[in-house]
Amino acid sequence: MTTAVAIWTFLVPLLLLWWIFQRAAGLKGGLATIVAGVAAFGAVLFPWFGHSLPHWSASLSGNFSVIMAVLLLVGIISRAGGCGFFRAGDWKAAWIFGAVASLLLYPSALGLGPQNFDSYALGWPWLFRGQSLVLFGGAGLTAALLIWCGNRFGYVLLLALLAYATGFQESENLWDYLLDPVYGAVSLLVVLWSAIRRVSR
């Protein structure tokens, strides 16, 4: 594990716990955010079954998506009363992107769908040359269109693409910079909940 991956696998669980503590306690404002952050820091360092949470999460997967990390950071800062970088439409774009990407990726990764097709393989730019352009070009085009339309999720997507170019993660697959099971599951739940509310109105 490189130092960059070690830092990343520490940072993302910290942000996740920070956000959870902040939300669970119904806290708002700068001081409350600091308290939640200190509690999250303590929980991250606390040994659970012999190891810290980052150690466990890295053992099971070191590839947290850049998008999820940025969304957590934006969520924490917004609730702290800082700059409202994301507006409702930006969040909506984030959830739709996560839900659509999850549906495209995870069923296929589990061996479902077309039997010898794995959309995860398109995340390596050199293996399936032509097909992988759909993912790389599609992600770039989505980010470009969102930025052009003034949607700030486009900047987050751009950040994920630039992070992929640096190769700081353990994975060489673009999907792992865009999506992870936590972001995917939350996105699906939010989109599903929104759809149910819309239908039941």
């Binding site: 790389f136 980010a143 470009a144 992929y164």
Partner: peptide, 23 residues
């Protein structure tokens, strides 16, 4: 910025074909 985003998507794909492993 939109052009940068498009380049950030296609750039690694293009670079992998120029210098990377073979398909």
């Amino acid at each position: 910025l939109a052009a940068v985003a498009l380049a950030a998507g296609i750039g690694p794909w293009w670079a992998a074909h120029e210098h990377g492993a073979k398909s």
